[in-house]
């Protein structure tokens, strides 16, 4: 069993599976519309210093997400 952590915690370049999105329905819906939802595999393309956004790849898309949102995305590291 691997650990469940916020998206902010996994290293750049690693992949993980989204377990749940802990935000309110607003954040939840916007992320789902972009294709980020429980069960989706994401790869962290880029992490920035301190408070900057994180870029993830999911399927054929890349999306930049503010750090606060990333803290609400719980993932389980794969591999």
């Amino acid at each position: 069993m691997s650990k469940q952590v916020p998206l902010t915690e996994i290293p750049e370049g690693s992949s993980a599976c989204v377990v749940e999105i802990a935000g309110g329905t607003g954040v939840h819906d916007r992320l789902r519309a972009l294709g980020i939802r429980a069960g989706v595999q994401v790869t962290k393309v880029s992490d920035s210093f301190a408070s900057g956004p994180i870029v993830v790849r999911h399927g054929q898309t890349q999306t930049a997400l503010g750090r606060g949102i990333c803290r609400k995305i719980v993932v389980e590291a794969t591999k």
Partner: peptide, 10 residues
């Protein structure tokens, strides 16, 4: 200020 949610096109 709201947080960034932005698709990055290829």
């Amino acid at each position: 200020s709201p947080e960034l949610i932005l698709e990055i096109p290829p």
